Lab assay of single mutants.
Amino acid sequence: NRTSFTQEQIEALEKEFERTHYPDVFARERLAAKIDLPEARIQVWFSNRRAKWRR
Rank of each mutant, 00 (worst) to 15 (best):
A32M: 06
T6N: 10
T3H: 04
S47Q: 14
R2H: 06
E16L: 10
P23L: 07
E14R: 02
R28Y: 12
W53M: 15
R41D: 14
D24C: 03
T20Y: 03
A27F: 02
R2M: 14
E11D: 12
F46R: 00
W53H: 15
E39K: 05
Q7A: 13
D36C: 11
R19W: 06
I42E: 01
A32D: 01
H21S: 04
I10W: 12
D36R: 10
P23R: 01
Y22A: 05
P38Y: 02
A27D: 13
R55C: 09
V44K: 10
N1T: 05
A32W: 01
H21D: 03
A33W: 09
D24S: 09
I35M: 10
Q9D: 03
L13R: 00
Q43I: 05
E39T: 06
Q7M: 10
V25Y: 08
E11H: 10
F5T: 06
L31T: 02
E11I: 11
I10R: 06
L37S: 05
L31R: 00
Q9C: 04
R41K: 11
W53P: 08
A33V: 09
E14C: 02
W45G: 00
A51R: 08
W53C: 11
P38V: 06
Y22L: 04
V25K: 11
R54W: 08
I42W: 00
E29L: 12
L13T: 00
R2C: 15
D36A: 10
R41Y: 08
A51Q: 06
N48L: 12
L31Q: 03
K52E: 11
A27Q: 14
R50I: 06
A51M: 10
D36H: 15
P23H: 00
A32V: 03
E14Q: 06
R41A: 13
R2V: 04
Q7T: 14
E14M: 02
K34Y: 04
Q7K: 12
S47G: 12
R2L: 13
E8K: 06
R19T: 08
Q43W: 06
F46W: 03
E16M: 13
E29G: 13
V44M: 09
V25S: 14
W53K: 06
V44Y: 08
E18S: 08
R28F: 10
W45T: 00
I10A: 11
Y22E: 08
E16A: 11
K52F: 07
A27G: 05
E8W: 05
T3R: 09
P23Q: 02
S4Y: 10
E14S: 05
A33F: 05
T6K: 06
A12F: 11
R49H: 13
T20N: 11
Q9F: 02
E11M: 12
Q43S: 11
A33P: 06
D36S: 15
N1Y: 14
R49A: 14
I10D: 03
A33K: 15
R19C: 06
P23M: 05
D36P: 05
N48D: 15
E29S: 13
R19V: 08
F26T: 14
N1C: 15
V25F: 15
N48H: 15
F5W: 06
R49G: 01
Q43E: 12
I35S: 03
F17H: 00
A32L: 03
F17A: 02
A40L: 06
T6S: 12
H21Y: 04
E16I: 12
D24P: 03
P38G: 07
T20H: 05
E14D: 05
W45Y: 05
F5L: 13
H21E: 08
R55N: 15
R28K: 08
F46Y: 04
I35C: 10
D36V: 07
K52N: 11
T20M: 06
F17D: 01
E16C: 08
R30A: 08
W53A: 13
A40C: 11
H21V: 05
K34W: 03
F26N: 15
S4E: 13
T6V: 03
R50V: 06
T3M: 12
I35P: 01
F26L: 15
R28C: 14
F46L: 05
F26Q: 15
L13K: 01
A40V: 11
R19N: 04
N1S: 04
E11F: 13
E14W: 01
E11N: 08
R28D: 02
T6Y: 04
P38C: 10
R30W: 07
A40M: 08
S4H: 11
I10M: 03
A27N: 07
A33T: 06
E16P: 00
R55H: 06
E11C: 09
F46M: 08
F17T: 00
E39R: 05
E39V: 12
T6A: 05
E16T: 10
L31F: 02
E8I: 11
R41N: 13
R50D: 02
S4R: 09
E16V: 09
S4L: 15
A32Y: 01
I35K: 02
R2A: 04
R50H: 02
E8L: 07
E11R: 08
V25G: 14
N48V: 11
R2S: 15
S47L: 11
I42D: 01
R55E: 05
D36W: 04
S47P: 01
A27H: 12
V25I: 08
I35V: 08
R54P: 10
I10S: 15
R30K: 15
F17L: 01
I42Y: 01
Q7E: 13
D24I: 00
T3W: 05
L31G: 00
R49Y: 04
W45Q: 00
E8T: 10
Q43N: 10
R28P: 02
W53L: 15
I35N: 05
I42T: 01
L37T: 09
A40G: 08
I10E: 06
R50C: 03
S47W: 11
F5I: 10
R30V: 09
K34M: 13
Q43H: 07
E8F: 15
R28L: 14
E18W: 06
V44T: 13
P38K: 08
A32R: 08
T3C: 05
P23T: 02
K15D: 11
E29W: 07
V25L: 13
R50P: 00
R49Q: 14
F17M: 01
E39F: 13
F5C: 09
I10G: 05
L37V: 14
L37E: 10
V44P: 02
L13P: 00
E18R: 05
E29F: 06
A12D: 07
F17S: 01
I42G: 01
E29D: 07
S4N: 10
Y22M: 05
N48I: 14
F26S: 15
P38D: 13
Q7D: 10
E11S: 12
R54H: 13
E11A: 13
K15N: 13
P23Y: 05
W53Q: 12
A27M: 09
I35F: 11
R54C: 14
K15Y: 08
K34R: 12
F5V: 10
Q9H: 05
V25Q: 12
R30D: 15
K15F: 05
Q7C: 11
E8D: 14
E39W: 04
N48W: 06
R54G: 14
E16Q: 05
L13I: 02
I42V: 09
R49D: 00
Q9I: 03
A33H: 07
R55F: 15
E14Y: 02
I10V: 08
A40D: 12
V25E: 15
A33Y: 10
K52Y: 05
W53V: 14
P38R: 04
A12N: 06
P38F: 02
Q9K: 05
N48K: 09
T20L: 04
K52R: 11
S47H: 06
A32T: 03
T20D: 12
E14G: 02
F46S: 03
I35L: 09
A51W: 06
D24F: 00
F26M: 14
A51D: 10
Q7Y: 10
L13D: 01
A12W: 06
R54D: 09
I35W: 06
P23S: 00
